[in-house]
């Protein structure tokens, strides 16, 4: 029973987290959301992989979140930059609590997310047809994350948000690819790429405040 419910819970969880990540501007919320998202990724990958290998995704994802969070916390300048300029909004004088957390133009983001949702809904069975090894639920999960990750990439120019978008899209791919390839080397390299993306994100956040080494 639980093995049937868990994937559905995972789909709901990653739908909520990826949608919230799309509209939020707050770095704390974004990092909490991506950490939750990796729980859903773990549940979906565990359908095809042994639990201990699927746990690599969870650990790598949480570590990626921790790396990004620590980069922001460690530097007051980075924190100020992220909190004062929410993606192009220069008028930060009288912001309501709501606008602190939610991006300007959220209805538009939600509309775009809705379009992605419809596309994914129709594409998931097609993907299962193309790749017989993949069941509809993981296909749905993978495509949701791919779509929402790409959408996030298109809506932002901030390093942290771009890295979160890349991690989201990559997580979507990993769910799909886990059904096709269970090589330990690939699992390891994908974990390295996840951590590498987080490290690059952290580096780009703090690079402007670092002393030039030239």
């Amino acid at each position: 029973m639980s093995s049937e419910i868990l994937p559905i819970v995972a789909i709901i969880l990653l739908s909520i987290t990826s949608l919230s990540m799309l509209i939020t501007t707050d770095w704390r919320i974004s990092i909490v959301l991506i950490s939750l998202q990796y729980v859903a990724v773990f549940l979906l990958v565990a359908i095809s992989w042994p639990l201990q290998m699927a746990a690599v995704k969870l650990v790598a994802g949480w570590m990626a979140g921790a790396i990004l969070g620590m980069a922001v916390i460690s530097s007051p300048d980075v924190r100020n930059r992220l909190e004062d300029v929410p993606s192009g909004d220069k008028s930060n004088g009288n912001k309501s609590t709501w606008s602190t957390f939610v991006q300007k133009g959220s209805p538009f983001h939600l509309l775009a997310a809705g379009l992605v949702g419809i596309t994914v809904y129709y594409l998931a069975p097609q993907l299962s047809e193309w790749i017989p090894e993949i069941r509809t639920i993981p296909a749905l999960g993978g495509l949701i994350l791919l779509g929402m990750g790409l959408l996030k990439l298109g809506f932002t120019d901030q390093p942290l948000m771009i890295i979160l978008g890349l991690l989201t899209a990559l997580a979507g791919f990993e769910i799909i690819y886990a059904t096709l390839e269970n090589s330990v080397l690939v699992a390891g390299l994908l974990a390295v790429i996840n951590l590498g993306l987080a490290l690059v994100g952290a580096y780009l956040l703090i690079a402007p405040d670092m002393e030039s080494t030239e």
Partner: peptide, 12 residues
Amino acid sequence: SPPGSSKHRGAL
């Protein structure tokens, strides 16, 4: 994007 640089658009 070496240390000290603040422009990352191309690198990203």
